[in-house]
């Protein structure tokens, strides 16, 4: 808190330290630059705590107040939020992996092998990317189960449930397109299985293989297509649907509550 009235001389050392703390605090949180970034004061009063949520672009996904049952962990187990958090980790680690990876059949495998041995924390980043990708798929399913078994898809949240189903598909496709990129035996043959499944679509089998996989077998054109889908097209589409998903939670009246 800023000290407004003249407090007189400090009486002892403790008071001296307290004064010093206040001045440092004031210098950090009440200076011109800080207040140009954060319009509200430090969130240590109810008013500022509401303002900080309402005036911050990242925090204003939330309402400023929330029913107390909704902050119980067992109400949602944070599953939707954690799915989104996995997406963020995947974006960060994915960008770092992109620095070292060239999506061509000639170099893809060597790039990954070199990433694991020659790049500082390269192996760690690849491991993080892989395990969080699996976690994201699992969390999406768990989140879907949570929403279903708590009846949270019911009116007025019907459409947001449909957006969620679309996000489930996008997550699976994102994971699947990433699966090919290391261009090892695991990747090639797993995607070959998927290629066969895509080709079995009635009426559109050949078209699916040509358009999505870029040919009648998994090869260089599949790699570049999957790479482009994986690093730019699908993340953008997923981000759009996620925005709708989060926005609709607020618009549809927050989290589902008993009538």
């Amino acid at each position: 808190m800023a000290v407004t009235e003249d407090p007189g001389k400090p009486r002892n050392l403790a008071e001296r330290v307290q004064r010093l703390q206040d001045r440092v605090y004031s210098a950090i949180f009440h200076n011109y630059v800080w207040q140009s970034i954060f319009r509200s004061g430090y969130p240590n009063t109810p008013r500022n705590q509401m303002l900080v949520v309402a005036t911050n672009i990242f925090l204003h996904l939330h309402p400023t107040r929330i029913h107390r049952t909704h902050v119980k962990i067992t109400h949602t187990y944070c599953l939707g939020g954690l799915t989104f958090f996995m997406f963020l980790i995947l974006t960060v680690t994915g960008v770092l992996l992109m620095f070292y990876y060239v999506p061509s059949v000639d170099s893809a495998y060597q790039d990954i092998a070199a990433l694991e041995t020659n790049v500082k924390f390269g192996l760690l980043m690849r491991n993080m990317h892989r395990w969080t990708a699996h976690a994201m798929v699992i969390l999406v399913f768990l989140h879907m189960m949570r929403v279903f078994y708590t009846g949270a898809y019911k009116p007025p949240r019907e459409f947001n449930w449909v957006v969620g189903v679309i996000l489930l598909v996008l997550t699976l496709v994102l994971s699947f397109t990433g699966y090919l990129l290391p261009w090892d035996q695991l990747a090639l043959w797993a995607v070959t299985v998927g290629h066969g499944i895509g080709g079995s679509a009635p009426f559109f089998g050949d078209e699916t293989q040509l358009i999505v996989f870029g040919g009648f077998e998994v090869g260089p054109s599949t790699l570049i297509r999957f790479y482009t889908l994986h690093v730019i097209a699908l993340p953008i589409i997923a981000a759009v649907f996620m925005s709708v998903h989060f926005w609709r939670i607020r618009r549809d009246g927050g989290m589902a509550r008993p009538l």
């Binding site: 892989r130 035996q185 695991l186 797993a190 299985v193």
Partner: peptide, 23 residues
């Protein structure tokens, strides 16, 4: 560590070859 097998080889089909677990 994340798995990394040998370089992809269209001539050698692993038996069995499997899709990712969710497929």
């Amino acid at each position: 560590n994340a798995p990394l097998l040998n370089r992809a080889n269209p001539e050698l089909t692993p038996n069995p070859s499997k899709a990712p677990w969710y497929f």
